[in-house]
Design a protein around this nucleic acid. Structure first.
Lengths: 132, 132
DNA sequence: TAACACTATGTAATAATATAACATTTACAA
DNA sequence: TTGTAAATGTTATATTATTACATAGTGTTA
C-alpha cells in the first residue's frame, strides 16, 4: 500500500487544475488561474508544485518548464519518468512502458555511479502533426 | 565526412569557455566571463548558445539550465543525448553508451509517434560523493 | 492540555533565466 | 555587385524561480 498524502488546501487547488488540463501548465499560467481562489503569489504556486512533484502527483517537463499530472499509477514516485513531446503541437504524454523503465532503472555504466532516478524526454511529431 | 561549421567570433569565444570548463556553465555566468571580450548582452550569449546547441558542439542540461561541451565525437548532432548528474557535487558527464543510444534511438511505443530526438538525464551519487 | 516539531501559508522584494523588437554589419554564393 | 542568409549590437522587457521574514495550522507526545 502506498503512503497516502493528504493534500493541503493550496496543493489540492493546484493539483486539480493541472489534473484537469489536457496540456502541461506553466507556473505563472497556474498562478493566473488560481488567483480567484486566493493564491496570490508565485511562491505559493512554486511551493505547492515542489511538494506535488516530490510526492509524485505531478511531473515537471524540464524542456518546457511545465507541469503535468502523473498518468501512471505505478509510477515510482517521480524517480523514473519518460515523456513523448510533439515538437509541432506541443502535446505531451507520459510513456509507461515496462521494458523501457526496467531497462533504464537497471542501467549502469563504467562510471561506477548508481543511478537512483532518471528523466527521459522523447521528441518528434505526433500522428496528427505528421499527417499534415 | 561531417559538415564543417566555422564558428563566428562570438560563437568561438563562448564555445572555448564552455569547452575549457570542468562543469556545466549557466548563461549568465558565461555572460560575466565574456564581458571583457566585448560581449555585453544576454542575447548575444543566448544566440551563440542556440547555434552551438543546434550544431551539436554543446548540449543543454535541461534540469540545470546549464551548458556543457559535447564529449562524444560520434554524437548525432544533439539528437540523442544522455547525461549522468551527481545530486551532491553536481558533476555532470555525458554518457556515450552504444547499447543505450541504439535502444533509445529505436524506441517506439503504441502512440504511433516516431521519435527523432531524445534527452535523458540520470541522477544519483557519484563515486566520490557515495563514499563520503 | 501544554509544549513541541513540522508543515503549510502569506507577503514583499528580488534574483535568475530568456526573448522581442529593431538597426546594422559581415560572409559568401549567384 | 548584388542578393541573401547569418551574425552582431543594443535596449527593453518577459518569464521563471528564490530569499527572507512573519504567521498559522496539524499532529504527536509528555
Amino acid at each position: 500500500m502506498e503512503k497516502q498524502h493528504n493534500l493541503s488546501k493550496n496543493q489540492k487547488i493546484i493539483f486539480d487544475l493541472i489534473d484537469k488540463s489536457p496540456e502541461p501548465l506553466k507556473a505563472y499560467s497556474i498562478l493566473f488561474n488560481v488567483q480567484k481562489k486566493g493564491i496570490n503569489a508565485p511562491l505559493q504556486v512554486y511551493r505547492a508544485l515542489d511538494k506535488l512533484v516530490e510526492i509524485g502527483k505531478i511531473h515537471k517537463i524540464e524542456s518546457r518548464n511545465a507541469f503535468i499530472a502523473c498518468q501512471n499509477s505505478s509510477c515510482q514516485i517521480s524517480k523514473a519518468t519518460a515523456f513523448s513531446i510533439c515538437e509541432s503541437c506541443e502535446k505531451v504524454s507520459e510513456i509507461s512502458n515496462t521494458k523501457l523503465s526496467k531497462y533504464l532503472s537497471n542501467f549502469a555504466d563504467e562510471s561506477g555511479m548508481k543511478y537512483s532516478k532518471y528523466n527521459l524526454e522523447f521528441f518528434g511529431l505526433c500522428k496528427k502533426c505528421k499527417s499534415k
